[in-house]
Amino acid sequence: MKKIFVVMVTLCMTAGLLSGCGSKDSGTSAPAVSATPAAAEESPAPAAETPEPSESPQAPAVTDDETVIHVGALKGPTSMGMVKLMADSDAGTTAGKYEFSIHGAVDEMTPKIVQGDFDIAAVPANLASVLYHNTKGQISVLAVNTLGVLYIVENGETVRSVADLKGKTLYASGKGATPEYALNYILKSNGLDPAKDLTIEYKSEHTECVAALAADPAGVAMLPQPFVTTAQVKNPDIRVALDLTKEWDNAQEGQEVKSSLITGVVVARNEFIEAHPDLVHTFLDEYHTSIDYVNGNVQDAAKLVGSYNIVPEEVAVKALPACNIVFMEGTEMKDALSGYLAVLLEQNPKAVGGALPDETFYYSR
């Protein structure tokens, strides 16, 4: 028990370094809820472009293992990709047996992962690394489920490239956490000094950034999805100027092994992986199918997102195409994630638990 207490205290100390999709000011926060859907709203939603689905997974592995898989996730993009799997599970049509728990804040999930209440969990990418170190290698990352969700927005038409941020005042939240580190990396990769070439004014909440943007016609802000869409619903004049995921990719040009800006991953306890390998394979296949469905059927997926109280349907239908929900495993996952964690390590080792995870951190089937 003493060891668990020490681990939990350490995790609480690092909580301020983490950036999850379910931050308290994202417009989606709520106490932990069950995955039983409420009545879906039937109001018409505007059409939205959808990204091409990833390569279709194989049929889920057939298994005689009747163990219930306990899955935890945060409200926001990292749980949006699960909604079809959640709905199919509630309908009793999945190969695996699941119990889902959706939470509004990362500090609600962390002790449950450490204590083994969750077999599998969708968490911020850097938290996975912190957990790996603090549990002495007792978890593995199964897949990347969300790329970057950060965007530069403005009221006008002045920002068309990262270079255009020079001389600007940029309002942002996430100081001392992964949003700041991602922003610094992209600015430096484009020849800008974050301390000299622009003024970055950090706020404690996303809503404060939007308020500051409204008061400063020449200002710009860095916001995550789905809060970008929430803000645009309230103020249609807000324009997405830069997608920081694409800007990260641009900064990777010429690199032999390319990393990605990553928001979320799925982890599992190694004890569960070793005891139920077939169930892990089944989950990954069914989760991959769910993500393909969400990306390929935005309006239907948005109804499910709203029904599970992750974000309102009218926000989800606009936000989903910009949430960069993906399914990456194996070598592709390792290359993208290890490079991302290396960028964080360079700026603040505590953000990844003090060091890069070793090879055993990356699950491969």
Rank of each mutant, 00 (worst) to 15 (best):
153 V>P: 03
153 V>F: 03
153 V>D: 00
154 E>G: 04
155 N>K: 13
155 N>H: 07
156 G>N: 15
156 G>L: 03
157 E>W: 06
157 E>Y: 11
157 E>R: 12
157 E>H: 13
158 T>R: 03
158 T>D: 15
158 T>H: 04
159 V>G: 04
160 R>D: 15
160 R>V: 09
160 R>L: 11
160 R>G: 12
161 S>T: 15
162 V>W: 00
162 V>L: 02
164 D>P: 02
164 D>Q: 10
165 L>T: 03
165 L>R: 02
165 L>V: 07
165 L>P: 08
166 K>Q: 11
166 K>V: 03
166 K>F: 07
167 G>D: 03
168 K>E: 04
169 T>H: 08
170 L>G: 01
170 L>P: 00
171 Y>M: 09
171 Y>S: 09
171 Y>E: 09
171 Y>Q: 04
171 Y>L: 06
172 A>W: 14
173 S>F: 15
173 S>Q: 14
174 G>A: 12
174 G>R: 11
175 K>P: 08
177 A>Y: 05
178 T>D: 06
178 T>R: 10
178 T>A: 14
178 T>L: 11
179 P>F: 02
180 E>V: 08
181 Y>I: 00
181 Y>F: 15
181 Y>N: 04
182 A>R: 14
182 A>H: 10
184 N>C: 10
184 N>M: 08
184 N>G: 09
185 Y>Q: 05
185 Y>E: 10
186 I>Q: 03
186 I>Y: 07
187 L>V: 05
188 K>A: 11
188 K>Q: 14
189 S>L: 07
189 S>K: 15
189 S>A: 15
190 N>S: 13
190 N>C: 08
190 N>W: 04
191 G>L: 07
191 G>W: 00
192 L>T: 05
192 L>S: 09
193 D>N: 15
193 D>C: 10
194 P>E: 04
194 P>H: 00
194 P>Y: 00
195 A>C: 08
195 A>T: 12
196 K>I: 00
